[in-house]
Design a protein around this nucleic acid. Structure first.
Lengths: 220, 220
DNA sequence: ACCTGAACACCGTTCAAGT
DNA sequence: ACCTGAACACCGTTCAAGT
């Protein structure tokens, strides 16, 4: 499969094209991730999709770990940094909802991001904006740092769970309903309340809760 | 290496011992995890440590995924469920601090737990207790569910980041200090505030923030 | 400078066969 | 019922060699 037609008009269009650079490698990795998920994202498959043998990748990237670092930051680049003249609460809210959207837009994105220290430039840009929002809110530096840590932990945890249950299969509430009520009385009661399309509302609840709390702190 | 001394006194003490059962497999997996981390936890090494060839494991466990499910719940079994006669806030606080402690007690535990729907009995026990605390606080069912989701997302996100930076290496604040201040003005200011032993305080801040907010909701 | 061929040291899993 | 041997279809990575 994948018949080569050498030099028809320069190069074949689309994928496989010679003279790679890092950007292309990362883009192809992101495409592959979306198609096959993190477990399917192997250096060999990535090379194949780039029309190259797998050892070639190591010219562009130190190892798979670095590839994933680059991929993580590429994903973060899709989170828009809100204009600094917006009110701080609006800025933070936008960062959170955009963060969630981006984390869900790419398969296993949350798993890739959550397991990695935020060293990429785009992550830093977002972190900078988040801290800036809380400083502008009037929080002392230390509280601003703690507040961002709080909010980021929540975002990551939420996106991770949402992605896993959106994909990992099945209604969780259905599962809960099968539990023995005498052992898990609270959970079986909850089974009815819980359903998947609830994720939006649940996230909204969390965001409002957090922003309300931060606003209260800022008011003092 | 690992010379066999067949039938000296029954069986060799310690590891490698015939007649496996699931419990032993999971225990050995946990030990191995702590020694070599998630990437090092392979079916082949696990088998070796059990004195058995790797295909034997498949008699006790469907596949590696199921092994990780079992491992996740084994880890959760280390979180004590607080006595129901304690005040709700104390119960929730204990669950959170014990949760964090357990997630840090085993290498890569947060990564294993966070990526997995909470289906194991011990997870359910803990979830049941958490929902129970908020119901006892006086929150309506739906708010109790949302509150638990909030608090669990935070715990997972926090533990994930803490584990990664505790192990993944290096002071993050040191890294921040190297950033160009004109691009990330907020972050370079923060670099001084941030340091590793801060994690305790930071987690405490988050827990207090969350519990205060929930208490306020309950008071209405 | 960038890519390939061949190889190394691994993986998870299946399956027929042993006891 | 439980375990082994052998095999399959993969992995990530190195390294000498090609252009």
């Amino acid at each position: 499969m994948g018949g080569r037609r050498p030099g028809l008009l320069g190069e074949e269009s689309g994928r496989r094209r010679r003279r790679l650079d890092r950007r292309q490698v990362v883009s192809a990795a992101l495409d592959l991730l979306d198609e096959v998920g993190l477990e399917g994202l192997t250096t060999r498959r990535l090379a194949e999709r780039l029309g190259v043998r797998s050892p070639s990748l190591y010219w562009h990237v130190r190892d798979k770990e670095e590839l994933l670092d680059l991929l993580a930051d590429r994903i973060m680049s899709e989170v828009p940094v809100p204009a600094p003249d917006l009110p701080w609460r609006e800025r933070l809210e936008r960062l959170l909802t955009a963060g969630r959207r981006t984390l869900l837009a790419h398969r296993d994105a949350a798993r890739i991001l959550a397991g990695r220290p935020p060293r990429g430039p785009h992550w830093l840009e977002v972190g900078n904006a988040a801290v800036g929002a809380l400083v502008d809110a009037g929080l002392p530096d230390r509280d601003a740092v703690d507040g961002v840590s709080l909010v980021v932990s929540y975002l990551m945890g939420f996106a991770l769970e949402e992605a896993e249950s959106a994909y990992g299969g099945g209604d969780y509430s259905e599962f809960l309903a099968t539990l023995p009520p005498e052992r898990f009385p609270r959970l079986t009661v909850m089974a009815g309340i819980l359903s998947r399309p609830d994720a939006d509302r649940q996230f909204g609840y969390g965001v409002r809760f957090l922003l309300d709390g931060l606003e209260r702190l800022a008011a003092r």
